[in-house]
Amino acid sequence: MIASFHQIVYFVRTAVGGLRASPLPTLVSIATIALAVVPLGGLLIITGNMGALLHRHGESRQVTAFLDADLTPDAESALARRAAELDDVTRVELVTREAALERFRERLGGGALLDALEENPLPASIEVTLASGAARGAAAEAAAAALRALPGVEEVAGGEAWVEGYARALALVRSAGLALGAILAVATLLIVANTVRLAVYARRDELEILALVGASRTFLRVPYLIEGAIQGTLGGMLGVGLLYALFQIAVPQLGDALDLFLGWSQPEFLSSARSALLVASGAGFGLLGATLAVARTRVS
């Protein structure tokens, strides 16, 4: 049956009326969907920010060579010049011990802790930018090895080891997110399905009367499907709202821990597209739950 515009208006009005007629089950259903959306959205935020860090690092073509502490400034400059002559190196910047300390102080947002130090513990370094195409794989390894071979270079950090570990951690978080999402999805579906089933039973007489006057199966069922979708949408919106509030509260509280975890970059909330996707997922859960509920409903 293709519904006319008037029937669609009737369906929506009936669905809204149905939701208002049973406020408590409706609120429970909306809250359940919201509570399922919050952890899922939280995982999306975490994986999104971790992914962004990995992406930034992948894009970065920088390798850092840390220098012996007892090198003179002239020797450090000479090393920087030799590094600039290596293959695939496009840019070299010498970061003196004083400059390194100043950067660290800026990142920490103050220097009370550093002021207590009697001696600067940071080494000087040479930040080498590689040509694009040489930032990953064998070319990056070769550039790092050439830097490591220079006398006066104590250690070279291209980040390969931690990047790999970080990527594994991200994959683990994503897998955990999928598993959690699946469990929450099933629980949410069951609760929405039960809410809609209760609504169907509460209005069984009404459905019977509608069937008597010639209402089709579609006509009888569509309002319940709309009810489910409305509950899902409201639950999704509430969930995203809660998540945003939690994000605003939690990020300043976690502060330094997040800085270390996310590499001194400001954590970002979900993009508009991802927020919309979460709300749409809520609507989808609601619709699917309602479909499950009415699939077995039989009115003679």
């Binding site: 008037h6 006057v213 006509f219």
Partner: peptide, 10 residues
């Protein structure tokens, strides 16, 4: 109701 199931205009 009997008319609404037919999709008649309000």
């Amino acid at each position: 109701l009997a008319l609404q199931v037919l999709g008649r205009p309000p």
